[in-house]
Simulated assay, not measured.
Amino acid sequence: QFADYHDFAILNTRPRTPKDKGLAEVCVQIIQRSVLVKLRERKFFSLEELQKAIDVEVDRINNGITKRFPESRSDRFHRFEKNELLALPKHPYPFSKWIFQQTVSEFYQFTIDGNIYSVPYTLIGKKLDIGVTSHEVQFYYENELITSHSLLEGYGQASILDEHMPANH
């Protein structure tokens, strides 16, 4: 969902096989050797102090020139990539609290944070994933959004939709 929201693809690699993305592995090594090793003996008393020290080392890496690469990473970024970047979405990604593999009971309802939400009765016995954002509760079956409800404030309230009930209810 995060990838869809920002319009990019996630390409998985085989587990425990650094051969798939060698360039990424080399970048991790560079950071470990050039940043972490240099900073591991230092003591930091705030996150801001640590972030400043990391920024200095990362800037040194990005602006560095080597015999093999006479142009810095920063220069290559500005020349090739910066103009290709897309604008960020107007609103930040709505992070969710997830509850996975919850079985729909015979009452086709779920209690979340003390409030009750309905799902279609046809899903009784099926396992759903539930995403809770700051304003919505979403129910997914096999990674497909089935229904959503506005997040209820307070405790003991219910959001039960008539279309979720069987005809004989």
Results as ranks from 00 to 15, higher is better:
Q1W: 15
D4K: 14
Y5Q: 11
D7L: 10
F8L: 03
F8V: 05
T17C: 14
T17W: 15
T17Q: 11
V26H: 13
Q29E: 11
I31N: 07
L36W: 10
L39T: 01
L39P: 00
R42D: 08
F44D: 01
L47G: 07
L50H: 00
Q51D: 03
V56G: 00
V58N: 05
R60H: 05
N62C: 15
N62G: 09
K67F: 02
K67V: 04
F69T: 07
P70K: 02
R73M: 14
F80D: 05
K82L: 05
N83Q: 07
N83M: 12
E84T: 14
E84Y: 08
L88D: 04
L88W: 02
H91S: 12
P92D: 04
Y93C: 10
P94G: 12
F95N: 13
K97P: 07
I99R: 10
F100V: 13
Q102R: 12
T103M: 04
S105V: 03
Q109L: 06
F110V: 01
I112G: 02
G114S: 11
N115T: 05
Y117G: 05
P120G: 02
Y121Q: 05
I124E: 10
L128D: 01
G131F: 05
G131M: 08
S134N: 09
S134T: 13
S134G: 12
E142T: 00
E144T: 02
T147N: 04
L152S: 15
E153W: 15
G154H: 08
Q157S: 14
A158H: 15
A158P: 12
L161Q: 11
A167G: 13
H169S: 12
